[in-house]
Design a protein around this nucleic acid. Sequence first.
DNA 1: GTCAATATGAAATATTAATTCCAATCTGTA
DNA 2: TACAGATTGGAATTAATATTTCATATTGAC
Lengths: 288, 288
Amino acid sequence: MAVGGATMDERVPRDFETLRATILERRHSLPKRIAQIAAYALDNPDDIAFGTAASIAASAGVQPSTLIRFAQQLGFDGFTSLQQVFRERLRERNSSYDERLAALRAKAEEGGGHRAIFDGFVAAASTSLGDISRSLNEAHFDEAVALLAKAETIYVLARRRSYPVASYIAYALGKLKIRNQLVESAAGLNAEMIGFATPRDAVIAISFSPYAPATIEETRSIAEQGVPIVAITDSSFSPLAQFAEVWFEVAEADFGGFRSISATMALAMALTVAVGEKRREAGRRRKG
Amino acid sequence: MAVGGATMDERVPRDFETLRATILERRHSLPKRIAQIAAYALDNPDDIAFGTAASIAASAGVQPSTLIRFAQQLGFDGFTSLQQVFRERLRERNSSYDERLAALRAKAEEGGGHRAIFDGFVAAASTSLGDISRSLNEAHFDEAVALLAKAETIYVLARRRSYPVASYIAYALGKLKIRNQLVESAAGLNAEMIGFATPRDAVIAISFSPYAPATIEETRSIAEQGVPIVAITDSSFSPLAQFAEVWFEVAEADFGGFRSISATMALAMALTVAVGEKRREAGRRRKG
DNA sequence: GTCAATATGAAATATTAATTCCAATCTGTA
DNA sequence: TACAGATTGGAATTAATATTTCATATTGAC
C-alpha cells in the first residue's frame, strides 16, 4: 500500500553512525521533549539497545509515546525498528576483532603482501589476549597456583604446538629456583621420568586439538599415580580436562592455519610467576 | 509461597562466566533437548541476548517451552532472567580495548593478588604487540622472507628465553614442509651441526639481552661460513646485529621481571608463514 | 490576546512475546 | 511387554510491551 511506501522513501538510517549523524544534524530543529530523548539516546545507547520503551522513557524523563514519535521523526516506523539499529551496533562492536581478522585473512589470501600476514598474526594474538582476559576464571587460577606452589617438583608436559609454552614454563620456573622437570626425553625415557612423580608433586599439562596422543597418554598415566594436574587446553571436551584437578580453557584465534599461542603464553607466565610469589610468601612466613 | 522461595535458595548464576561453568558442569546430566539448547546458548550468546524466546528456540531447533525449562533448570525463574545475564555480558564487553588495557595495567600495578599478575602479563603482551605493529620495517621483512625462502635448510638458533620461539619456528617450518634444523643438541654436537651449513642455507638467530653466549658464538661461527643470517634481537647494539644480513629490533614489555615474548612470537610466525607462501608461489611459477 | 498549529501527557488498545498446561512420546526397569 | 517417570511438543493462557488515540497544553504568528 502507498502509505507504507511513503516511509520507505525517506532515508532511514540503517547503521548507528548514520543515525547519530542524522540526530546531531537535526538536533536544533527538534521539539523539546524529542530533543531530550535524542540526547539521552546518544548518551546511553546501551540502554536503548536493551530497555523497553517504558523503561527508557522513564529514564529519559519522557512519555513512551514521545519515544515513538522520536523514532518516527527519524523515519522508522516505530520504536522497535529504531532499537534494532542500537542492537546491531552492539553486535558489531563485539565482533569487530573477528571481522578485522577476516579482512586481514582475505587481504593476505588475495596477495596483499607480507605486511598483511604480519598484521594477521598480530591481530590473532591481540584477539586471543582479549578473549582470555575476559574469560579467565579467577578462582581456578588461585586453585592452580595453590596446587602448584606446594608441589615438590613441577612436571611440565607438552608436545608439538604446545611445546614452546612448556619450554618457556620450564625456563621461568628455573629462574625462580622452582624445581621442575620438562618431560621431553629424546632418549625415549619419558615413561620412566614420569614414574618418579608422587602425589606430593604436580603437573602442568598443555594440549590443544588435535591432542598429541603422547601428551594424553602421559597425562593419564601420571594422573593414575595420584599426581595432581593443572591442564591448559582448548575446550571442555578435551581429554585432558577429565584428568585435571584444575583446567583452563584457552581459545586462540588462528591465522593462515596457525593458531596464536600468545594467550597460552600469558597464562603460563602468570601461573609461573604467581607460583613463585606464593612460595616466597610461604617461605617468609616459615622463617618469620 | 514456599515454591518461589525455593528457587531463590539455589545459587543462580549472576554473571556469564559462572553461568557458563554451571552449564558445562551439568552438561552430561541434561536431557537431550535441554542439552541442545545449552550448547546453542554457549555457541551463540549474542543470539540469546537479542532474540525472543520463539526466535531463539527456532534457531536452536527446539520448542520455546524447552528454552524456558532450560532457564528454570539453571535456577532462573524464566527465560527473561536468563537473558539478562547474556545482555549484561555484552554491556561489559563493550568497553574499548585501550580502556581495558589501561585498567589492567592500573590494577596490576596496585598489586591486587593473583589476578593482577595475570592482568600484568596480558597488558605486557598487548603493549608489545602494539609496539611491534607500529615499528616493523616492511622492507626488512620482505628482505628476510626472500632470503629465507631460497635457503635449502633453515637453521634455527636460540637459547634460554628465546628458545621457545625457536622451537615454535621449527614446528611451523616442519608443518609447512620446509627443511629446517633446530640447533639444540643435548649431546653437545652443535658445532658439528652448524658445520654442515653452507651459503645456500640460511639462519634465523634469536637472542635478547643478556645475550646467551652460546647463541652469539654459534652465530659468529656460522656467519664466518658465509651463511646468511636473519636476526631477531632487542637493540642495535646487540652482538647479533653485526653478523646479520637483516635484523629486527623487537621491544618487549616486561612484567614482574619477565619479559613478554608475544611480539617475537608474532614476528616469528609471520616470517615462517610468509616464507611458506613465497615458496609456494615460486614452486607454481617453476611448474606453470 | 486570539487562533491555529504543534507538541505533550496519559490512558486505552493492539500486538507481541513469555509462560503454563496437558497430551503424547520416549526411556529405563521389572 | 507393561508400567512409571521423565521428557517433549504444541496449543492455550497470561503477561508484557509497543502503539494509538484523544484530550490538554504550549508555542508562535497576526
